[in-house]
Nucleic acid binder design. Sequence first.
DNA 1: CGCGTCCTTGAACCGCGTCAAGCCAGGTGG
DNA 2: CCACCTGGCTTGACGCGGTTCAAGGACGCG
Lengths: 239, 239
Amino acid sequence: MNSLNRKKIDCFSCENELCLIKTCGSGSIALLEEKKTQLVLDKGQAIFQEDAPVFGLFFIQKGKVKVVSSNLDGKKQIVRLANKQHLLGHVGTGYETYPIGAFALENTRVCFFDSDLMVEAFKQNFDLSFCVMMFYSKELRKSEIRTKYLAQMTVREKIVFSLIYVVDTFGICSSSNTLEASLSRSEIASIAGTNSDQVSRTITALKSDGLISTDGNKIVILNLDGMNAIIARYVHESI
Amino acid sequence: MNSLNRKKIDCFSCENELCLIKTCGSGSIALLEEKKTQLVLDKGQAIFQEDAPVFGLFFIQKGKVKVVSSNLDGKKQIVRLANKQHLLGHVGTGYETYPIGAFALENTRVCFFDSDLMVEAFKQNFDLSFCVMMFYSKELRKSEIRTKYLAQMTVREKIVFSLIYVVDTFGICSSSNTLEASLSRSEIASIAGTNSDQVSRTITALKSDGLISTDGNKIVILNLDGMNAIIARYVHESI
DNA sequence: CGCGTCCTTGAACCGCGTCAAGCCAGGTGG
DNA sequence: CCACCTGGCTTGACGCGGTTCAAGGACGCG
């Protein structure tokens, strides 16, 4: 079922060179390595649930993740997409909780370090502290821009933006131009803040405009410039 | 015009005990103090503009600030409200820019420290690094929750949420229950992601429901529990 | 083969954005 | 002191975009 070996991968033999833990000195890595826990998840499985607050950080070793928040009716909103450069969770004091969950979009491996461990690592490794700070700072700016987009764009624009966001985060296959991530219509809808009906309609329209095509349930990007043109009036600079 | 004395206030005599700079040791503060620049702004003035990227951090010594982003048509979105516990701007590498501006909502004093200075301070003061990291982390979560709200709420709910957000950030007068911040209809609209017409209509409706009243251009909160009930189905825990 | 899930598409309703007119308060100048 | 202007607030009317509901199709799976 899962193509990933379930045996724990240690930090020294880990191939993910973008993992921020790699900014630590080898002494710190040895300590972190010893105390970390590792999860291997199938597509769709939860890394953590909305009603169970986590105090610690998950680093994505491999895979793709959606970060979601839902209201009490169960309607879901994808608030962030994350790849192996990203981290999940927050170093908490234990007093605050936030209704946010994270789910694997494909077979995924994550490493978890609890808050106490991270605080110790931050104290000993300025580079790690600084990189994690920069990560949050950058994600905050991206989230603020996304806030504006959701507030101002039409549904068509929001869906186009969502597709571009998926391309930016997960990339496209260089040969076939298909999206690397396989997302359902309702998942795209919950990025864009609409429903799956509108996503279907819009995708049909974008196909007849020659901007995209579909291959099974994969989406093929035919004209990224044309898609960017649709949302150009919202975009000042590259994100 | 401006009630604030324009003479520079140094960090040692500054009364804002919530300023994160206060987490530094006195040696670092002396250095930061010497190199910081300070701005005193009237209501409406820009701290920094959207098209002029800043590389450094602004700490709000006193006052209230809105952080805005607009599209190329000029339509504005308020993406964050900030008080004297907050900070503005980002420590940048110089390669990325984000179209975000900040404006004083009342007479305001801010202190600016450039990126190089902040990096030095971060290196020498773990507590500062950690507090700033926590600030970004917390704001990111709040922004993600706000993303969900804007995507899913009706206009009425978004406006009620925006008023509650203003109360949470800036507070209300304990005697009269009026909002501490004086915001125009169109400013409320650009928090909620709608237009000033809808804000007028909704405020009229909320008044006839007995939830709020108005005193001149000040908004009086009569029934905060009733307002929270309107958005209850979106809210899991306190933010 | 039958069932469930997801996707697609049409039709209908309605929330909300837009436009326009009127009102009020404050500022300015004759 | 009044006339005028300006900008923000309010409210009604209208039309469109988008959500919702429902039906049918495609596909995978037991």
